[in-house]
Simulated scan of single mutants.
Amino acid sequence: MPDLRTERLLLRSWREADRAPWAAMNADPEVREHLGEPLTTAQSDASIDRFQEALDSRGWGWWAVEVAATGEFAGFAGLDPVEDGLPFTGIEAGWRLARGAWGHGYATEAAHAVLAYGFDTLGLPEILALTTAMNTRSQAVMRRLGMTYDPADDFDDPSVPPGPLRASVVYRLPRAAYRLDTR
């Protein structure tokens, strides 16, 4: 499984040392604001195990993100198939950072590396990004990446209990638009 490198970040396999900061992130109500209830340590550990299993078996998925200059764990970013039961299919890009990593442009930087891998290495025709309708910060990252939004794609996420987090949006980036925007 390849590491992805940017000017300031390393997207890599998960390590045992990532478990505590990942659990802390997932227990932080601000980090989880658009994701639902905070996770327990056991739930966070199980997610790392799933992420690493996917990386090992497919060669891509949700990479751990660290700040290259310090080695500090910053969160995750990657690609994953859209979950079953949604009104569309495809591969989605995503990211989640610890609060201390917010405001540095890391989400956009990591997502650019993920998009390049998806288009240039995997040959994907399109990459999606999904979030709650209320998550304006993630939507801003999606726009900075050159992704476009169509209200016709809005959906209620069936995996989310009824409430304000259920209303979701989809941003799309076709390969041709990526090449025009980033090359």
Rank of each mutant, 00 (worst) to 15 (best):
residue 105 G to M: 02
residue 44 S to H: 05
residue 138 S to L: 07
residue 3 D to L: 13
residue 25 M to W: 02
residue 96 R to C: 01
residue 72 E to A: 05
residue 93 A to K: 02
residue 153 D to S: 12
residue 60 W to C: 06
residue 141 V to Q: 09
residue 101 A to V: 00
residue 163 G to Y: 09
residue 2 P to T: 15
residue 42 A to G: 08
residue 93 A to T: 15
residue 50 R to N: 07
residue 72 E to W: 00
residue 183 R to W: 09
residue 114 V to K: 03
residue 65 V to G: 12
residue 137 R to N: 10
residue 48 I to W: 08
residue 70 T to C: 05
residue 105 G to F: 04
residue 89 T to W: 00
residue 66 E to G: 10
residue 103 G to F: 00
residue 108 T to W: 07
residue 119 F to Q: 03
residue 36 G to Q: 01
residue 163 G to A: 11
residue 108 T to V: 15
residue 142 M to C: 12
residue 74 A to W: 12
residue 30 E to N: 03
residue 70 T to I: 05
residue 82 V to Q: 01
residue 15 R to Q: 11
residue 180 L to T: 14
residue 13 S to G: 14
residue 101 A to L: 00
residue 60 W to P: 07
residue 9 L to E: 02
residue 51 F to M: 13
residue 7 E to G: 09
residue 118 G to Q: 04
residue 157 D to L: 15
residue 47 S to Y: 09
residue 71 G to M: 06
residue 60 W to A: 05
residue 179 R to F: 07
residue 178 Y to E: 11
residue 126 E to F: 11
residue 130 L to Y: 08
residue 130 L to D: 08
residue 42 A to Y: 02
residue 155 F to I: 15
residue 108 T to D: 08
residue 162 P to A: 13
residue 56 D to Y: 04
residue 72 E to V: 02
residue 112 H to K: 13
residue 76 F to L: 10
residue 84 D to G: 03
residue 40 T to M: 02
residue 63 W to Q: 12
residue 101 A to S: 06
residue 95 W to M: 01
residue 42 A to C: 04
residue 24 A to M: 02
residue 175 R to Y: 02
residue 170 V to I: 12
residue 55 L to Y: 08
residue 13 S to N: 14
residue 70 T to M: 06
residue 4 L to Q: 10
residue 13 S to M: 11
residue 9 L to R: 01
residue 107 A to G: 05
residue 138 S to R: 06
residue 180 L to Q: 13
residue 75 G to H: 11
residue 16 E to N: 13
residue 173 L to C: 12
residue 90 G to Y: 05
residue 173 L to Q: 14
residue 9 L to P: 01
residue 163 G to P: 14
residue 20 A to R: 06
residue 29 P to S: 07
residue 135 N to I: 10
residue 79 L to G: 10
residue 18 D to T: 13
residue 129 A to P: 05
residue 181 D to A: 14
residue 94 G to P: 03
residue 178 Y to I: 15
residue 144 R to M: 11
residue 156 D to M: 09
residue 172 R to K: 12
residue 19 R to F: 04
residue 2 P to N: 15
residue 128 L to Y: 09
residue 111 A to R: 05
residue 116 A to Y: 00
residue 48 I to F: 08
residue 116 A to S: 07
residue 85 G to V: 03
residue 108 T to H: 14
residue 26 N to V: 06
residue 13 S to L: 14
residue 96 R to I: 01
residue 80 D to G: 09
residue 41 T to K: 06
residue 21 P to K: 05
